[in-house]
Amino acid sequence: MNRRAYQAIMRLRFMLLMQYRIAALAGITTQFMFGFVKIMVLEAFYLSTTQPQPLTFQQAVGYVWLGQAMLRLLPWDGDGEIQALVRSGNVAYELCRPLDLYSHWYARAIALRVAPTLLRAVPVFLVTLFVLPPKYALSIPTAGGWAAWILSTLGAIALGCAITNLINISMFWTISGEGISRLIPAVVIILSGMGVPLPLFPDWSQRLLELLPFAGLVDTPARFFTGQLSPTMIWVFLARQLVWTAILIIWGRRLLARGLRRVVVQGG
């Protein structure tokens, strides 16, 4: 493995993506607005519900803010540059490098997910932890909660990048990527818990949500952070994230190999 190369690619992408500061600022405003709307809806729900819920209101608030802070970690689109490379045929150059293409793209995916998240997460965390009135604020977790959240966030990154890479690879079949990039957000947002916290979904759907990979993206870290899951459970959930990551990586590698076999480097 040529670690140095993949790190260099990641670093370059990271530096480029960190340039989008104004976009991040605009994004943060949007995220606060969405966060408050969701919290208002949830508050109305918690005021009217008569049954005990699997998530306390305080935990639900935390869940929402975490989702907003880590929004850009969600793999709801592919790497625009890779899509352009495939569309234009410049992918030819990527194949002329002594690199494993899957790892190369995975390194780029890490930068694509982590750089914008860092830009947005830090201010959102600061405000929601320390500025907002306690009722609508993010509560500081226990030490165990922090540790479990960090581990499960790393798991979420690994998983999210495997999904991102699948979206990239699908370009070999669809060329434009338009269809996929409209379909994926709906699936990912709903099934990861970014829309409505997964514990509030009907009981019959819980098993299915647990089996699918998407809960590992938002739901798992959020539940550890808010204390809805005990930190001792981290190994089970981390294992689930990693097993899914492994499956998606193997699948992605197979698809990529097939895609490359049929590649008709576009143009000329």
């Binding site: 040529n2 140095r4 190369a5 790190q7 260099a8 690619i9 370059l12 490098r97 002594p98 690199l99």
Partner: peptide, 8 residues
């Protein structure tokens, strides 16, 4: 420099 790293 990226190429330098890629080709080690």
């Amino acid at each position: 420099e990226l190429l330098r790293d890629i080709y080690r």
